[in-house]
């Protein structure tokens, strides 16, 4: 019964962040995270937060521009997975870059 529809109460539970369903919408523009900071916290910072055993370098202590951030996110590198736009869209990546730049801290030596 492929045509069976979900009751309206269930449809209300839908979680996608404002995804448009028009057939031609570019889905990769839809936001999976509401802000760059949220994406940073839920994805990137898990490896880049700079705690003692972090998997990746502390990005808040480096100097990165948006192009570098985008390059690494889309290609991955060694242990770092590549992220598709379906996972982290372009706008969110720009916001992540802005967040990383805005929260830059010089290493405490």
């Amino acid at each position: 019964m492929p045509g069976k529809r979900w009751p309206a109460t269930l449809a209300a539970l839908v979680l996608t962040a404002g995804m448009a369903h028009a057939q031609d919408a570019r889905l990769d523009d839809s936001r999976m995270f509401s802000t760059g900071e949220e994406a940073w916290n839920k994805v990137c910072s898990r490896c880049h937060s700079g705690h003692e055993n972090s998997v990746g370098p502390n990005l808040l202590q480096g100097s990165y521009d948006e192009d570098i951030i985008r390059f690494f996110a889309r290609h991955g590198s060694g242990p770092m997975p590549a992220f598709t736009a379906a996972m982290v869209d372009d706008t969110t990546l720009s916001q992540i870059a802005a967040y990383v730049i805005a929260n830059h801290k010089e290493p405490a030596e």
Binding site: R46, C47, E52, N53, V55, G76, S77, G78, P79, M80
Partner: peptide, 29 residues
Amino acid sequence: KEPFAYRAALMRGGMSLQEFGLYRWRGGG
């Protein structure tokens, strides 16, 4: 302390990507 912290998270279904450290052990992906 890691790795206890991430193990404790996983055993209650908590989110962590700490185990990706395996991929840096030798490097080269």
